[in-house]
Design a protein around this nucleic acid. Structure first.
Length: 468
RNA sequence: GGCGGCAUAGCCAAGUGGCUAAGGCAGGAGCCUGCAAAGCUCUGAUCCCCGGUUCGAAUCCGGGUGCCGCCUCCA
């Protein structure tokens, strides 16, 4: 099966051909760790988690790196307001990030490089650029990349910047030769700055150079490319990825990545997520209210390239949709999985192999659920089908990362042990009333349960309950 | 000012030239049930507007309108 992806630089869907047969190298631009992860981080992580899972299912040997930017202006600003060291602060947020991503089923990266651990690699890259004339030093010691020396500058974002640039908001610092030029190295600006001493004058790296240097250090690629796929949020295309590509091209004489993938943005109730608007939604806050797997499901039911409008109403619709998968799983409770239906498996994998068409994949899942339920209504004892259905659900779990939890517990989340006992007692009471055909009492007990947020269902295996 | 994206039923959302325009939520009808719930069945749109290309377009091209993003740190 061919994997197809939409290359956001070439702007077309392409057949994926890896640099090395059967292997894939992926680099994702990870977070700057100065605060907790928000829903946008979640969406980006989930998009490329699906990429990784799909490629693995297609039998590629996947090596995935996701960096942490642990030195930057925002971190330094935050540090000034706290009494933590740089390492304490960034390690705290790195752990928070990893925990939050664990909660939504994002598999850990194979390599998690930190900027501060790659200062030498960055310095050596900058040194190469300086020596070959692609970079220059300002009077204050800052080192800038000379974008005019790179004839391919602009080829990634297709961004042509007017020489006049009257409307451009590119920062124009005295001494910069061209508005497009960007900082490779920032010289030490005083006691409150965080500085590194090495090959370069005391100072710290610019943002863009870290990705180029970390990719160069961890991946070999071939003569033309460093890695197969470079991923990140849509906002990174320019200037971040343009600049990364330029640095790599000019220092290593090859392109940084063969393919580029960018995920769409998350909005909340139709508005851009931002702290100034007061609607910034941290993943940790969402996790206090909603189950992590539900958030995952909700965030991946829409194609990764589209913008995503996060809102409670759609989230509840998603909950009901995911419930259907768990109801089937509950119906199959206690059975053993055999092998997934090969048609189902192929269709699902094919959908995901088509530029991660998760919307289509879930439509296939829904149809599978309906089909199994329909057959099971007619043939409740079809054991082979039940075992196959369980295997289907396991496959969904490994490819899409949902439906992995215990089906009984799924519907009883947030119910305390005492309440569970109380519910069981009430159900027993109702059963005996029902047996005596005292439906008035039975119904009043059902109402009582409903007021506790519990719904019940009479089945062939007795009365079952769920939290509403 | 420059670059780019999007517009499909009440809502969410696939579809990128051709069988009856996927799927979900909500709604309606039915089967099942003591009644419910769950499950199942049936039920809805000609695809923002105008023009063009084509035997044939939601899908391609041109022109509108509207929304959004990037060009400053940003997933």
């Amino acid at each position: 099966m061919k994997f197809k992806l939409y290359d956001s630089v070439k702007k077309e869907k392409l057949d994926f051909t890896p640099i090395k047969e059967g292997e894939v190298s992926i680099y994702i631009c990870g977070p700057t760790v100065y605060d907790d992860a928000h829903l946008g981080h979640a969406r980006s992580a989930l998009s490329f988690d699906l990429l990784r899972r799909t490629l693995k299912e297609l039998n590629f040997k996947v090596t995935l790196a996701k960096n942490f930017t642990d030195i930057d202006d925002k971190i330094i600003n935050k540090l000034k307001k706290s009494n933590q060291t740089l390492q304490e602060l960034t390690e705290y947020y790195i752990n928070r990030y990893l925990c939050d991503m664990d909660s939504i089923g994002v598999q850990r990266a194979d390599i998690e490089p930190k900027a501060t651990e790659h200062i030498e690699a960055m310095e050596s890259m900058i040194d190469t650029l300086l020596k070959s004339g692609y970079a220059y030093k300002l009077d204050n010691g800052d080192i800038y990349f000379d974008s005019t020396k790179d004839s391919k500058y602009g080829s990634i974002s297709n961004m042509v910047i007017d020489e006049d640039a009257t409307q451009s908001r590119l920062e124009n610092i005295d001494g910069k030769k061209d508005p497009k030029d960007f900082a490779l190295w920032k010289s030490c600006k005083g006691d409150e700055d965080i500085c590194f001493d090495g090959l370069m004058p005391s100072g710290r790296p610019g943002w863009h150079i870290e990705c180029s240097a970390m990719i160069a250090k961890h991946f070999n690629g071939d003569d033309n490319y460093c890695i197969d796929i470079h991923c990140g949020g849509a906002d990174l295309l320019f200037p971040h990825h343009e600049n990364e590509a330029a640095q790599t091209r000019c220092s290593l004489n090859k392109e940084i990545a063969k393919y580029w993938m960018h995920n769409g943005f998350v909005q909340i109730d139709g508005e851009k997520m931002s702290k100034s608007l007061g609607n910034s939604f941290f993943l940790k806050d969402a996790l206090k209210i909603y189950d992590g797997e539900l958030l995952r499901f909700y965030l991946i039911t829409i194609h990764y390239r589209n913008d995503f409008n996060f809102n409670e109403e759609d989230l509840h619709a998603s909950k009901k949709r995911l419930d259907k998968l768990y109801r089937l799983k509950k119906r199959l409770y206690g059975g053993k999985a055999s092998k997934p239906n090969s048609n189902f498996k192929n269709e699902l994998l094919e959908a995901m192999s088509d530029d991660l068409n998760s919307s289509k994949a879930f439509a296939i899942v829904d149809e599978m659920i309906s089909n199994i339920n329909e057959t099971l209504d007619k043939e409740p004892k079809n054991r082979a089908l039940k075992q196959e259905a369980l295997a289907n659900i396991e496959f969904i779990g490994s490819l899409l990362g949902v439906g992995c939890k215990d089906a009984i517990e799924w519907f009883q989340q947030g119910v305390s042990k005492e309440d569970k006992e109380k519910i069981e007692t009430l159900i027993a009471k109702r059963d005996s009333a029902k047996n005596k055909r005292d439906f008035e009492l039975a119904d009043s007990i059902r109402d009582e349960l409903k007021s506790m947020g519990i719904t019940i269902m009479d089945t062939a295996d007795g009365t079952k309950w769920e939290k509403l």
